[in-house]
Design a protein around this nucleic acid. Structure first.
Length: 292
DNA sequence: ACTATGCCCTGGGTGC
DNA sequence: TGCACCCAGGGCATAG
C-alpha cells in the first residue's frame, strides 16, 4: 500500500525519466476503465496523447504530473497500484491496467491488482483531491496544526491520523509506526493527548515517514518503486504486521486489533490508554468544556 | 460538526 | 483436492 514515502520514492525515480518526455500512445486496458475518473477512458487516452511531462509533484499520496498544456494528470495508486518505467519489449504484468508509450522508446506501466487506483486530468490539482489537508512532510503540518486537529475530538487518534485532512500521506503502516514511536495507544481519544504527547506524535510522524523514505518505502505486498523494484523499510518496522513478535523496546508481545475499521498493531505495555478520568490540559471534549 | 459504517475489488490464505 | 469463505484497505458516500 503506497503511502507518502512510497509515492515520493516513485516521484523521485520517475522524474529524470519522465520530465521532457512526450506521451505518444496511451492505452487503458479492458477491465481497467474505472481508473479514469474525470473522462471516459477513450477520451482520457486522447487527451493525454501528445502531451509532454514538465514536472512531477506529490501531495500526500497523490502523484501530480504537470503537462505542457497547463493541466495536471493526478494519479492515485490506492492499495495495489504501481507506476513504473519498463522497456517496450517487457511483457505486461499480470495486472497491468494501462500502458503509455514514451517518445524515447521506453514505456510507463500502470499495474493494479484491485483496480482501486484513479487518474484525474484537471486544470488544478486540488480539484482531484478535495478532501485533502496539508502534506505530512510540508511546512503547514506543524505541531500547532496537529494540536488544533486533535483538540476536542473524541475519535481514536489513529482514525484522526488516517484522516487525510489532518496529515495527507499518512496511511495504515505509518499511523501504527508513529503511534508506537510516540508511545500513544491507537484508541486514545484525540482530545485526550497532552500537549507534550501531541508534540511527540508530530515528531514521530515525521520520523517514521523520513526513515521509510530513506529505505525507499515498504514493500509489504504490491508496492514497487518507479523502476519496478521493492522498498526496504518493511523489514525495519516496529509494529506493523508484527503481531505475536516482541516489542523492540520492552519485549512485550505486539498485539493486533481493529481501530477505525483498520488492522492496528501496537505494544500493549509501551502504548497505554490514559485513564478515562485523567484530564489533560486540553483533555476535555468540546462538550465537556461547554459544560464547565 | 462529528463519528461510524459500508462500499469498491480480487488474489491469497484458511478451514472443512 | 476442491470449495466456500474471509481478509487486506484509501477514499468517499451515507446514515445517525
Amino acid at each position: 500500500m503506497p503511502e507518502l514515502p512510497e509515492v515520493e520514492t516513485i516521484r523521485r525515480d520517475l522524474t529524470p525519466l519522465l520530465v521532457g518526455r512526450r506521451l505518444l500512445r496511451v492505452r487503458i486496458h479492458p477491465g481497467g476503465e474505472r481508473l479514469a475518473v474525470t473522462h471516459a477512458p477513450r477520451d482520457l487516452e486522447r487527451q493525454l496523447e501528445g502531451r509532454r511531462v514538465e514536472s512531477l509533484g506529490r501531495h500526500g499520496k497523490y502523484l501530480l504530473l504537470r503537462l505542457d498544456d497547463g493541466r495536471t494528470w493526478v494519479v492515485h495508486l490506492r492499495m495495489t497500484g504501481s507506476l513504473h518505467i519498463a522497456p517496450a519489449e517487457a511483457p505486461p504484468h499480470r495486472f497491468e491496467r494501462a500502458r503509455i508509450d514514451l517518445d524515447d522508446g521506453s514505456t510507463l506501466r500502470f499495474n493494479d491488482l484491485r483496480k482501486f487506483g484513479t487518474w484525474h486530468l484537471v486544470d488544478e490539482a486540488a480539484e482531484a483531491m478535495p478532501h485533502t489537508g496539508p502534506d505530512a512532510l510540508g511546512e503547514e503540518f506543524s505541531p500547532r496544526w496537529l494540536a488544533a486537529r486533535l483538540g476536542g475530538r473524541s475519535a481514536p487518534v489513529k482514525a484522526l491520523l488516517l484522516d487525510q485532512r489532518v496529515a495527507a500521506g499518512v496511511g495504515n503502516i505509518y499511523a501504527d509506526e508513529a503511534l508506537w514511536i510516540a508511545r500513544v495507544h491507537p484508541e486514545t481519544p484525540g482530545g485526550r493527548l497532552s500537549p507534550a504527547k501531541v508534540r511527540a506524535l508530530h515528531a514521530a510522524v515525521l520520523e517514521t515517514l523520513e526513515d521509510s523514505l530513506g529505505d525507499r518505502g515498504s514493500s509489504f505486498s504490491d508496492y514497487r518503486d518507479g523502476l519496478g523494484g521493492e522498498g526496504m523499510h518493511h523489514v525495519r518496522v516496529h509494529v506493523f504486521r508484527r503481531e505475536g513478535q516482541p516489542c523492540g523496546r520492552c519485549g512485550t508481545t505486539i498485539v493486533k486489533s481493529r481501530v477505525a475499521g483498520r488492522g492496528t498493531h501496537y505494544c500493549p505495555k509501551c502504548q497505554r490508554l490514559p485513564r478515562a478520568d485523567a484530564g489533560s490540559p486540553s483533555g476535555l471534549t468540546k462538550r465537556e468544556r461547554r459544560r464547565t
